[in-house]
Amino acid sequence: MLSIPASCASVVQGLGPKSGIGMPLLNVPFASAASVATGIAEAFKQLGVKGRAVVWAGDGGTADIGFAAVSAAAERNSDVLYVMYDNEAYMNTGIQRSSETPKYAWTTTTPAYAGGKKEQKKDVALIMLAHGAPYVATANIAYPQDLYRKLKRAAEIEGFKFIHLFAPCPPGWSFDPSLTVEVARKAVETGYWILWEYDDGVFKLNPPSTIYADKSKRRPLKEYLKLQGRFAHLTDEQIAELEKEIDKRWDTVLKLAKAFGK
């Protein structure tokens, strides 16, 4: 049973009582998805129904508006598989910035003439890791086999599972829809997005990100940024600054892989 809070997914699913998604679903208020899913998981247990409680929520509904509920569900270790698809802004309401919007990106509330967004992106996956959730992973729509494996693995585990899924938005990021997979792939190849998973106390990088742990193997960040209109106003200095921030993110992830590797 899927819970979907207000998000692009509540549009994509089609008109109720039908749904274009291959499992029964409930549309729930913005902040409540993790709590509703907890209730569904408990009801399944009580009624002896064989089923899984899954949440499919955006970055706004997870990292901002729904964050207290997500944190509480993780703390309770509710038997929920939570997927946050991250398109880095409030897209279906008209591209307003979220805490997942990256620094300097244009949105309608962080205009280019004012320099784009001032704050940096919140690393929700690492925050969920700090909750002690039994399974946390990042994923990317350009690598569906990796996502499929992670969903299957997460479904085997009892407790709170969190997958942070990178999902480019053509109108919100200003690029042609045919480039959606290309943009997502470039995010990994430039090191902007890192594929990793934390499973049963072990933290590890997943391919192809394993290759990009070596900085010299990464493509220049510009190749990712130049595909998108939302970064068109960036100066070379700002791009260099973003590259440094990516290095810092890698540093953290590699330290975790070293500390919690097998």
Binding site: Q13, K18, S19, G20, I21, G22, P24, L25, L26
Partner: peptide
């Protein structure tokens, strides 16, 4: 009010 899978929901 549960929505269920069906073709052409949009």
């Amino acid at each position: 009010p549960i929505s269920r899978p069906a073709p052409g929901s949009g």
